[in-house]
Simulated scan of single mutants.
Amino acid sequence: MDPILVVCFPAVGDFVRCHSAIRILADRFPGRPIDIVTSPGNVVFARFMPHVRKAWALKKQHIRLGLAERRDLVRELRKENYGSAYLMTSTIKAALIPFMARIPERIGYPQELQFGLVNRLPADWLRHLWAFGPRKTRLYEEVCSVATLGVKLTANVDWPSPQMIIPAVELDEWRKRAGVDAERPALALFTGEMERLRSWPMERFISIAKDYSSRGWAVWIVGGPREHGAANRIRAEVPQAVDFTTTPLIDVMYQLAASALFLGVNGGMSHAAAALSVPCVLIFGSNLSYIHAPVNQHVRLLEPPISTPSWIVGTVGVSEERVREALASALADRPQGS
């Protein structure tokens, strides 16, 4: 049967959320292979997503359309004879890819009025068109609605959550390369950029790190260059903590999957950890978790209480005590043997 192309978001967290739509398509069309287009960094993560056959890389263009690069990709896509394309991102730049590749069925929301580039619209497309601007629904709902053509769910039916799976053998090989003791539990910390409101006070991350380290846990700071400064500050107080923010991108998935607990803020790594079924405690600004948080069941979400002075902006109102309680609860509920 004709394969399906899914045009995904370039940011890590948004890309992970697209897997809900991929799971829906795999269930609806079990005989059709599913390929994706995403940013180069996400391509290394895509092979851990069930139902994804192949991932095509397209560099994110902030201003330019990047027509030359799109032409190169389109030449390869035409060889695959895709029958349908599902556009998770509702932009003209995204819609150009399946249009130029001559994919006959191109499904998505025309939020940038790309009629013609998109030629099949979900049943509720007019409501989305009327909204314009910021999304009125969660991104999770948006991508699932594209995959189901806007058909409303029947009672007692839920859309699937994103899922990523790393083979046990591959994870054991990484532990050997990294010198990680599989018997020692690890707490992964994702601080985000310290200067941004979505982060959590650094002294509280340090306090949590000290506590778990004193109890014999390994403490890993995960992320990328944006989190490297935070890693330096944590290690200044907790020298035994491991800075994983400078490791290759593919290793981030292994670090997350090998963790016993994950503590983080709003960001791509939090979505990846949730999709890998790691017990997560995630800190969000007030009224933001519903919109931006992962939908996986094993995630505990913390927001500042409205009664605190900081509830309007930032995460200062999330106390260290609440985080400790949530981590203990997440650990207690972790399935045996995981």
Score class of each variant (00 low, 15 high):
residue 160 P to K: 02
residue 160 P to H: 05
residue 161 S to G: 12
residue 161 S to F: 11
residue 161 S to K: 08
residue 161 S to Q: 09
residue 161 S to V: 03
residue 162 P to C: 03
residue 163 Q to V: 10
residue 163 Q to C: 05
residue 164 M to I: 14
residue 166 I to L: 05
residue 167 P to Y: 00
residue 167 P to G: 05
residue 167 P to E: 08
residue 167 P to Q: 05
residue 167 P to C: 02
residue 168 A to Q: 14
residue 169 V to F: 00
residue 169 V to W: 01
residue 169 V to P: 04
residue 170 E to I: 04
residue 170 E to C: 08
residue 171 L to R: 06
residue 171 L to F: 01
residue 171 L to K: 01
residue 171 L to P: 11
residue 172 D to W: 07
residue 172 D to I: 11
residue 172 D to R: 06
residue 172 D to E: 11
residue 173 E to M: 06
residue 173 E to N: 13
residue 174 W to P: 12
residue 175 R to Q: 10
residue 175 R to P: 15
residue 176 K to Q: 15
residue 177 R to F: 14
residue 177 R to Y: 06
residue 179 G to E: 04
residue 179 G to M: 07
residue 180 V to I: 13
residue 180 V to S: 02
residue 180 V to Y: 11
residue 180 V to K: 02
residue 181 D to K: 11
residue 181 D to R: 01
residue 181 D to V: 13
residue 181 D to W: 02
residue 182 A to T: 11
residue 182 A to N: 06
residue 182 A to C: 15
residue 182 A to M: 03
residue 183 E to D: 14
residue 183 E to P: 05
residue 184 R to L: 09
residue 184 R to V: 07
residue 184 R to P: 09
residue 184 R to Q: 11
residue 184 R to T: 15
residue 185 P to H: 02
residue 185 P to A: 08
residue 185 P to S: 12
residue 186 A to G: 07
residue 186 A to Q: 02
residue 187 L to F: 02
residue 187 L to D: 03
residue 187 L to A: 01
residue 188 A to R: 00
residue 188 A to N: 03
residue 188 A to L: 00
residue 189 L to Y: 05
residue 189 L to T: 12
residue 190 F to P: 03
residue 190 F to S: 04
residue 190 F to I: 06
residue 190 F to K: 09
residue 190 F to H: 04
residue 191 T to K: 00
residue 191 T to Y: 06
residue 191 T to F: 04
residue 193 E to Y: 00
residue 193 E to P: 12
residue 193 E to S: 10
residue 193 E to D: 08
residue 194 M to R: 00
residue 195 E to V: 12
residue 195 E to S: 12
residue 196 R to V: 10
